[in-house]
Amino acid sequence: MVAIGDSAISQLRRGVLEFCVLAMLRGDERYGFEIVRALSEADGLVTTEGTLYPLLGRLRKEGVVETTWRESPSGPPRRYYRLTPAGHSLLSAFTAEWTRFRDSVDRLLDTGALT
């Protein structure tokens, strides 16, 4: 069996992951730990949970999510993430692109041809 280049898969993962985070926030706000645990339980999406926190920070800096610290019923305060209007439109744009991309790749992988 030929091994898939580690970097190819991790690049693919890195490229898609931020949109997975945005998608998780489409309905409602969530706190950091909740996002990280949910993503890491999805098969094959995340290798190390810790590296998701820098990603969350970057999304906030880019203005696609905004955050508020709120007290938790137990333990330390939680930081809640919510989509901004810019985040919503970025997510819709990606969803459209992704659908086309996925369909074409699937078709090629299935049949070896595009029609």
């Binding site: 950091g32 730990f33 810790g50 926190y53 820098p54 330390p76």
Partner: peptide, 17 residues
């Protein structure tokens, strides 16, 4: 600023998990 935020998030993660 980044250092503080990152440490706060990981601290919260550890406290939850």
């Amino acid at each position: 600023g980044e250092r503080r935020e990152l440490v706060a998030e990981i601290n919260a993660h550890l406290a939850e998990a």
